[in-house]
């Protein structure tokens, strides 16, 4: 069950303010990193919704993000529709794709669910990879950013874009947190805990699981829009299963089922990657070993572990007072 604790709110605000300051004072390179963090954070939050709360470990979220990015690309760069409605439609397409995959795979659990989402994600990847109209493996360019010139905001500058990406992180977090502490999120946790019993007390778990994938897909769709607008170019690599795998790593490193953990994980992951790549080409091995160590240490992740210590200390304090 999700609780938006004060600690989580403080960490959220602190992290976003820190990233904003980094973007403001850190120059162009810092802003690129902040956008990269934002995309990964939203994708990780969207995976946490299904994996952390619903127990559905999805390997198709990269593909869902890609469906959004490509829909946005088709509508704007190919068909010339304006950016804002196109983005809304693209996020909708991601939500629909998520719902459909969720509905078809809703009867599978465990490793079968993982494999089934892998299959659908790879299908989307292959279709786009093979499509000459969509540019195949060359990708597609010319995706516009939003035009906020009327408000005096130049979105083609790196700083406004980085701050816009951070704003979307905040929105996605709030949306996810809100939905996870609503009836919808409670039901999802119940399904994770004991799906047959949820059916026995009257929940159509298949429909609910599909809805959860749809909501999660919506969030992943937002990440897709930022990814498309960021370098204004997209390639099928966005949809490949390892993108989902990497985002799942971020969720685990940060703390599964905490929503804020995945965000912390995204910050740590991107910074670690760029820091390490300054010293060595071989950051993969570090990430791999850290991941293995995290899982073996109980799988709570960075934020989850801290929260675990805090509740244990509180419990011990209460026991001493009693």
């Amino acid at each position: 069950m999700f609780h938006q604790t004060p600690t989580r709110s403080i960490v959220l605000v602190f992290a976003l303010v820190a990233l904003a300051l980094y973007a403001i004072y850190g120059g162009y390179f810092a802003r690129e990193i902040v956008v990269e963090i934002a995309i990964l954070a939203i994708l990780a939050i969207s995976i946490d919704v299904v994996a952390g709360f619903g127990g559905m470990v999805s390997l198709c979220h990269g593909a869902i993000m890609g469906v959004s990015a490509y829909t946005y690309g088709i509508l704007t760069a190919k068909l010339g529709y304006p950016a804002l409605p196109s983005a809304v439609a693209a996020i909708g397409a991601a939500a629909v794709f998520g719902t459909v995959v969720g509905w078809i795979t809703a009867r599978t659990t465990g490793i079968y669910f993982i494999m089934a989402t892998l299959a659908f994600g790879q299908m989307a990847y292959t279709v786009i990879f093979k499509s000459r109209w969509l540019g195949g493996d060359d990708g597609m360019g010319g995706l516009p950013r939003f035009d906020f010139d009327w408000a005096g905001i130049a979105m083609n500058k790196s700083l406004p874009f980085a701050l816009y990406a951070l704003l979307l992180v905040l929105l996605c977090y709030v949306a996810a947190a809100w939905v996870m502490r609503s009836a919808f999120g409670r039901t999802l946790c119940g399904i994770h805990s004991n799906e047959p019993r949820m059916r026995a007390i009257g929940v159509s778990t298949i429909i609910h699981r599909a809805r959860a994938m749809g909501f999660s897909g919506l969030l992943a769709g937002v990440a897709g829009i930022i990814a498309g607008q960021h370098i204004q170019y997209i390639s099928p690599e966005l949809l490949f299963w390892t993108v989902s795998g990497e985002a799942l790593i971020v969720v685990i490193l940060g703390g599964l089922g905490t929503l804020i953990g995945p965000m912390i994980g995204a910050i740590a992951f991107v910074l670690l990657k760029h820091e390490l790549s300054g010293y060595t080409d071989h950051w993969h091995i570090v990430v791999g070993l850290v991941l293995i160590a995290t899982v073996l240490a109980g799988g709570r992740g960075l934020y989850g572990q801290i929260e675990h210590w805090m509740t244990r200390r509180k419990a011990r304090g209460a026991a001493q007072n009693a």
Binding site: V57, G245, I285, V287, G288, I292, G299
Partner: peptide, 14 residues
């Protein structure tokens, strides 16, 4: 399965 997938995914990186 999730922990197994994650650890062996980490092994791929290693």
């Amino acid at each position: 399965p999730m922990n197994q997938v994650l650890v062996t995914f980490g092994l791929i990186f290693v």
